[in-house]
């Protein structure tokens, strides 16, 4: 293992760890500006994480090991995923052979699974309500995630994200109709998975909560890790979307290239943030059960991509 690979790995993982809250901060700030508010600082997520890290942990009376230790596991799973997909650096780094696209999807599911279990251990009515909602949509979410990943796998003939990324860099492959429909489906899924659907509301109002309600009983370091984990998850999925689907070009190689890639990723993320800003601020609020319709459209789009590819193969 060369020092180059080690430095590229460190750049990728540290980039994910340290920059993921920034994009959430930028999006929140721009959203406030569009709505005519001054809004929080783009660094607000960092301030929140620091504040939470200093607070004590409140343990619900019925909770125990899973509630206390689950956040460490969830955070580590997202950290592990940051080694295996091209989210900053375009070539495989250390530990990359751990999982392929499908295995990555299963690791995301594992994090979701632990979040549900640790939340349930708190035995809170509001948390259970949120878990019920989260589970209600997981069947469509999980199927769409798998289908989208497989859609690109079928187009490129491999389930390796790095090979896939290189493949779709050719304009002919990029504009291939199945790739386009898979791109739209994955964007819709990203909106759902990161809690950016116009249905959800964060904060203390339980009426629109899905993902936020899972951390309702958390405080202190546990909440910090779960929040940070959410930022990383959003960054990982968003970066896969950018690098494998929407904008597969522009990343550089080599140790210096890895550092410059952080800037390239920043520019790509600005594109994603602007698109999301338009979507978030122009759509009316959903009713809860409409989430199913939204995800069903995403699933159908990814399915269309699959069918077109298989028929195209003859």
């Amino acid at each position: 293992m060369s020092w180059d690979v080690i430095s590229e790995t460190i750049t990728q993982v540290l980039g994910v760890l340290l920059l993921s809250p920034l994009y959430a901060g930028i999006l929140d700030r721009l959203k406030a500006v569009v709505e005519g508010r001054r809004g929080p600082s783009v660094l607000q997520p960092y301030y929140d994480l620091v504040k939470l890290s200093r607070k004590e942990t409140l343990l619900p009376r019925n909770a125990g090991n899973i509630f206390l230790n689950g956040p460490y596991l969830v955070f580590s799973i997202y950290l592990l995923i940051s080694f295996v997909i091209p989210v900053v650096y375009p070539r495989p780094v250390i530990f990359t052979p751990t999982v392929d696209f499908l295995g990555g999807a299963l690791l995301f599911s594992l994090a979701g699974f632990i979040k549900v279990y640790e939340a349930m251990e708190s035995s809170s009515n509001l948390v259970t309500l949120g878990v019920s909602r989260a589970l209600s949509f997981s069947y469509l979410g999980e199927a769409t995630l798998l289908t989208v990943f497989i859609a690109v796998a079928l187009i490129t003939g491999t389930n390796n994200p790095y090979v896939t990324m290189q493949y779709v860099q050719s304009l002919g492959h990029y504009l291939f109709l199945p790739h386009v429909s898979a791109t739209v489906a994955f964007y819709m899924l990203w909106l759902f998975e990161t809690g950016r659907l116009p249905l959800e509301s964060s904060g203390m109002s339980e009426m629109g909560m899905i993902d936020d309600s899972l951390v309702y009983e958390y405080s202190g370091k546990g909440l910090m890790l779960l929040r940070w984990g959410s930022y990383i998850k959003s960054y990982l999925l968003g970066s896969v979307f950018l690098n494998v689907f929407l904008l597969p070009w522009g990343l550089l190689t080599g140790p210096l290239g890895a550092i410059l890639d952080l800037g390239v990723m920043f520019l790509k993320w600005m594109v994603l943030i602007l698109v999301t800003l338009v979507v978030e601020t122009s759509l009316a609020k959903f009713r809860l059960f409409k989430v199913q319709d939204f995800l069903a459209v995403a699933l159908v789009l990814s399915l269309i991509s699959l069918i077109l590819t298989v028929i195209g193969n003859g």
Binding site: E56, T57, L58, L59, P60, R61, N62, L68, S122, S123, S124, N125, L126, V127, Y216, E217, G220, K221, G222
Partner: peptide, 10 residues
């Protein structure tokens, strides 16, 4: 971490 046991908020 400092841990304090409380009732769930609900």
């Amino acid at each position: 971490r400092r841990v304090r046991t409380v009732d769930p908020w609900d």
